[in-house]
Design a protein around this nucleic acid. Structure first.
Lengths: 63, 63
DNA sequence: ACGTAATGACAAGTATACTTGACATATTGA
DNA sequence: TCAATATGTCAAGTATACTTGTCATTACGT
């Protein structure tokens, strides 16, 4: 599962820690998702989509 | 996290086992998601959305 | 009424998604 | 150049998402 987190973050000049704070998760969680160690849970994917005002499918893609 | 799985399944006259087969997960997993014991993983949510040709947000909703 | 299919649920095990804490390296800015 | 910030990663613990197996209850068809 690929994702555009790093790009979306860069567009806003947010650090991984900034994003983590806004999502109320740890910085390591953001790093792990960006570096594709694992996928977020569905609830976290919803929070991410909500924060960026995008659809889940516009941020995460199978493959 | 609520979901419309039961309705989508009923529209197609599929049993929980039918749906489980199509998604390659166990029947208990479908039952647990429908009865809100837990949410699917993001990859499984994508498979579900794909199977029903809907967006994740049209099947699962926060709250 | 009977047998079968469907659903709900529990237990115990494994895999994955998270946590905090720590540390090394890379990047940035004054 | 130096210090601060950002990123990547590891370890160990907890929570959640899955598995198989099993059983009780409900609904359905004849």
């Amino acid at each position: 599962m690929k994702n555009r987190l790093k790009i979306l973050r860069a567009e806003r000049n947010w650090s991984q820690a900034d994003l983590a704070d806004r999502l109320a998760v740890s910085r390591q969680t953001i790093n792990a998702i960006e570096t594709e160690k694992y996928d977020p849970s569905l609830p976290l994917a919803f929070k991410i989509a909500d924060l960026f005002a995008l659809r889940i499918e516009d941020i995460f893609m199978a493959i």
